[in-house]
Design a protein around this nucleic acid. Structure first.
Lengths: 344, 344
DNA sequence: TTGTAGGCGTTATCAA
DNA sequence: TTGATAACGCCTACAA
């Protein structure tokens, strides 16, 4: 007693008194089918409640219409925004998304995650794990060769890898130059962990901007935070102790900027009168803090969308035997000026 | 010229001079294989860089080891937290995740999303779309019967549906009772859109708590926000106009509470001295606002984990022909008391 | 312990 | 325009 509860294309074919191939043709629309038979088949499909099996289809087509997304830190604002952009674009292009999270982005779960994606025959991969420490060491031509096309997010430019990222250096410059324009001269920075590429980039942007203006950019003005508001508070106290005349702080994300604002409040430093503050990320909350926070907006949803577009390109090319060249695509952020950095 | 670039189980078999079945046995471990032949096979696997094809395996096994997750509002704090919990637990149980986002949670994309999940033969589905308006109308026994097991998140209890949710009513009561204990007597509420089930639940919690204490809970004390900080600001002004003697506001999420704090600042109302404020969600930012924000913590990652556990149960049961009963599981939130609600 | 044969559900090729 | 038939890559009885 084979209790056949899944209805297949053959069941439909029998019911419509045609062959399975013909049913397939109306399903895929790849070959013409006479109008009256197509109607009969459609009726059979509806009556039987037939659901095509994409696994079987993928098996013979050798393409699954799915993309793998490997991400981390999804509870943060940035990554989740990016993911939304990825999903939207993937959806529009007809891809399903296979999601994997790297919980500890520095360790070597990389292989198992990639293997699973390979085993499921994804058509392409979006690598949305932040670059930190040596966690990009696996990215070498030999490894990439056995993978489907991959697009990397937020990573240092390098040959053989296609990258879509925001321009962190430019973003930091935007904020720092703005502070300079407002008349600030001693501008401290609270960075993210320097193992993070993004943190280093923003630091570099800060430095180059100050250097160009002939301002001080000594280590006295640098504090390494860890992206948390608590580290923002610590950074404030540290910088103030090191450089009492400091008149502005650029926090490399809004959370840390929040910590600075709070510390300022209890230290009796008025913002922006005594100290200007700028953040990075432009979280929705930024506009409603007191004072509202000047911040750098990154268009992360666009980064996600664009990554999928690039990936789609690469997938299409490869399926036609071509090989699309690797390159880096940088998206320029935008400064949103608010109360926390008003003119002196 | 069949340019065979995918290495299959047969290639491995040839290389190891065994049959494909034997290779399969070492792969699945379901049947014993002599130690020396297993070694030979393993060697062949490594040399050839063989990657098993899960699509083919799923086809014959009639199970894909994957779960579908349908979510919305992922750019918000709550949903992304929940997703992280889901992914972690799924990962631990060996499931891959197929992610779909509903962009407009009120419309009827439901069928297409479900169809795709069905077509990919997911073993189970987690429905993490917030209940609003009529967007749960599709949940009827006849529809559920043709689906794999489904676990719903954050939804009103109903027969035939397995639900994992936080107890929004209890959470609101926690906050409001706390405000009462602090000596507040005119406690306003800024709700979410009342089409949202969660918003109605929190409102109910507020009301029952005030009723039990013999306090006023008239419409004068209710403002319907939309979860944004901007609506929090509007709510503050509205409530103050309606009920000048108001001495506390319960905002149904932290974003709106943030708007209240800001509005208070510019209106010259001191928090908590003139007005106590409590929020909901306990975002990481809550602890660093000025004043720091009393809020309700929901353990959302646990909700996600638990949902996957329940789903796993249901999947296992069904595969053995049993049918697991539907039920609702409520997780009690927890109040985190901070400066914004200090005693009068 | 291992090999053989058949089938999972679909599509593509080749005739008709 | 439609119908057989042979893959796609893997697993599982059943035999050996």
């Amino acid at each position: 007693m084979n209790h056949k509860q899944t209805v297949t294309i053959i069941d439909v074919a029998k019911r419509a008194k045609v062959s399975a191939g013909t049913v397939s043709n109306v399903l895929t629309g790849k070959r013409p089918v006479a109008e009256h038979t197509r109607k009969r088949i459609q009726a059979a499909i509806d009556e039987l409640g037939y659901q095509p099996n994409l696994l079987a289809r993928s098996l013979v087509n050798r393409t699954s219409n799915s993309l793998g997304v490997v991400a981390s830190g999804l509870e943060l604002y940035g990554p989740s925004r990016t993911l939304v952009g990825i999903e939207r674009q993937a959806n529009e292009l007809g891809y399903s998304l296979l999601l994997s999270l790297l919980h500890d982005p520095e360790t070597d779960e990389v292989d198992s995650v990639l293997d699973d994606l390979l085993a499921r025959r994804v058509d392409g991969i979006i690598w949305a794990v932040h670059e930190m420490g040596r966690n990009r060491a696996w990215i070498v031509p030999d490894r990439l060769r056995v993978l489907p096309p991959v697009v990397f997010l937020t990573m240092e430019s390098r040959p053989h890898a296609t990258i879509v990222s925001t321009d962190n250096r430019a973003g930091a410059s935007l904020a720092v130059c703005h502070l300079l324009e407002q008349g600030r001269r001693q501008i401290g920075i609270i960075t993210g962990p320097i193992e993070w590429w993004e943190a280093r980039e923003r630091l570099a942007g800060w430095r180059s901007c100050l250097a160009a203006a002939g301002c001080n950019y000594s280590d006295n003005l640098v504090f390494a935070g860890d992206w948390t508001a608590a580290s923002g508070e610590r950074g404030f106290h540290h910088l103030l102790a090191q450089q009492p005349g400091i008149d502005a702080i650029f926090a490399c994300n809004d959370q840390m900027a929040l910590g600075v604002l709070r510390a300022c409040h209890f230290a009796g430093r008025r913002v922006p009168d005594d100290l200007a503050v700028a953040g990075y990320d432009n979280m929705p909350e930024a506009a409603y803090l007191v004072p509202s926070l000047t911040s750098v907006r990154q268009h992360l949803a666009d980064v996600g969308r664009m990554a999928v577009q690039e990936l789609h390109q690469a997938v299409s090319s490869r399926s036609q035997g071509e090989v699309s060249p690797a390159y880096t695509r940088l998206i320029t952020p935008e400064l949103v000026i608010r109360e926390s950095s008003r003119r002196l």
